[in-house]
C-alpha cells in the first residue's frame, strides 16, 4: 500500500507544479470562475474514469464506455421526450440499467470467448454507436425539448459568488455526486473481498482461480459496474449541458484512459487507486482547460493527450520494472 501512497504523492506533486506553472503564465487560472468551471469539467470524466479504473485494475481495458454513455443518455432522453415523461430518479435508474446491460455484454464476450478486452470493446463500441444512430436517428435533443426537471437537476449549484466582472458563477452541486461515487468505489476496492478480488485477478488471473476466487463474478462485476458508471455519467452530462447529442463523447476514451494511467494505474493490471485516478483526471482536465485559456488551437490538445498517455505509461512501466529487480 505504501507504493500507492507514494505514487499518489508524486502525481499530486506534479499536479501542484503544473498548477503553479499555468498560474504564472496566465493569472486568470486562479480566478474563481475558472476554478469552478474546472471542477465542473471533472465530474463526468471523473465518474467514467472510476469505471475505467476498475477495468484497468482487473487487467483489462475498455474503449466502449463513451458509446455506452451515449446510448444510455440518448435512449433515455429520447424515450422521455417520446413519452412526455419528466423526472430525475427514474431516468437515472434507466440510464444505469442500460449502461450495466451493455457492460454485461462486454463481460459475456470477454468471459465466454476468452477474448482480449481491447478488441471486444472496440467492436461493441462500434456496434453500439451504429445501432443508436441507425435505430434512433441523429437529431440532437436541444434545450427546448429537453425534459425540464432534468435540466433543473443539472443546474443546481453548491455555492455561487459574484465574479469581478459582475457575473454570478456557481460551483455545480454535481461535484458532490462525483465525490460520493468516488468514496463508494474507494471503500469497495479497499474494504470488500470483491474489491480485493479485482486486484488479485489483475495481478495473476491463474492464481486467483486457484485461490478459489470466482473470477467470472469478478469480470462481470467489473464490466457491469463500469457500464453502470458510464450510463450514469452520460445522463448526468446531458442534464448539465441541457442537450442530448447522439454523436457526443467521440474520442473521449483516450482522454479518460490517459487520466487513469496518469493517476498511477498500471496498464498491466493489479495497480491503481481512486485517489490517484481523481488526481489524474484533475490534471488532465486542467491541462486541456488551460490550453484553451492560453488560446492554443484545440487540435493541439490531441497532441498533448497523446504525449500524456505515452509518458504516463512509460513512467508506470518503468516503476513496475524497477521493482522487479
Amino acid at each position: 500500500m505504501r507504493i500507492f501512497q507514494s505514487t499518489e504523492a508524486v502525481i499530486a506533486l506534479v499536479l501542484i507544479l503544473v498548477m503553479f506553472a499555468i498560474g504564472l503564465v496566465n493569472p486568470a487560472f486562479w480566478g474563481v470562475s475558472n476554478l469552478f468551471s474546472l471542477a465542473k469539467s471533472n465530474v463526468v470524466i471523473g465518474i467514467m474514469a472510476l469505471g475505467v479504473l476498475l477495468i484497468m485494475i482487473s487487467g483489462g481495458i475498455d474503449v466502449s464506455f463513451p458509446a455506452i454513455s451515449v446510448a444510455a443518455l440518448y435512449i433515455t432522453v429520447r424515450s422521455m421526450v417520446a413519452l412526455g415523461y419528466d423526472g430525475v430518479m427514474l431516468p437515472f435508474i434507466a440510464a444505469c440499467v442500460i449502461g450495466m446491460s451493455l457492460g454485461a455484454l462486454n463481460a459475456v464476450i470477454i468471459d465466454r470467448f476468452k477474448m482480449i478486452p481491447l478488441i471486444v470493446t472496440l467492436g461493441t463500441a462500434s456496434i453500439i454507436r451504429g445501432l443508436v444512430l441507425g435505430l434512433l436517428g441523429t437529431s440532437i435533443v436541444n434545450i427546448n425539448k429537453m425534459p425540464k426537471e432534468l435540466i433543473e437537476f443539472g443546474k443546481q449549484d453548491l455555492v455561487s459568488v459574484t465574479a469581478q466582472n459582475g457575473a454570478t458563477v456557481g460551483l455545480t452541486a454535481m461535484v458532490l455526486v462525483y465525490l460520493a461515487i468516488a468514496v463508494v468505489v474507494h471503500l469497495m476496492l479497499k474494504y470488500t473481498m470483491i474489491g480485493r478480488s479485482i486486484y488479485a485477478y489483475g495481478g495473476d488471473a491463474e492464481s486467483a482461480r486457484r485461490a478459489g476466487i470466482n473470477t467470472r463474478r469478478t469480470i462481470f462485476f467489473v464490466y457491469c459496474t463500469a457500464g453502470l458508471l458510464a450510463g450514469f455519467a452520460g445522463l448526468l452530462h446531458s442534464s448539465m449541458i441541457w442537450q442530448a447529442n447522439p454523436r457526443d463523447f467521440i474520442g473521449l476514451e483516450l482522454d479518460v484512459i490517459a487520466a487513469v494511467v496518469l493517476g498511477g494505474a498500471s496498464i498491466f493490471g493489479g495497480r491503481g487507486s481512486v485517489l490517484g485516478t481523481m488526481i489524474g483526471v484533475f490534471t488532465l482536465v486542467m491541462v486541456k482547460n488551460s490550453l484553451i485559456l492560453m488560446k492554443v488551437d484545440t487540435t493541439w490538445q490531441r497532441v498533448v493527450v497523446g504525449v500524456i498517455i505515452i509518458a504516463a505509461t512509460a513512467i508506470t512501466a518503468w516503476r513496475d520494472r524497477k521493482k522487479l529487480v
Binding site: 488479485a200 492464481s207 493490471g269
Partner: peptide, 12 residues
C-alpha cells in the same frame, strides 16, 4: 505449493 507459488505480486 506449485513451482510458481500462485502468489499475487501486486498485493502485500
Amino acid at each position: 505449493i506449485y513451482q510458481d507459488f500462485s502468489l499475487f505480486g501486486n498485493l502485500t
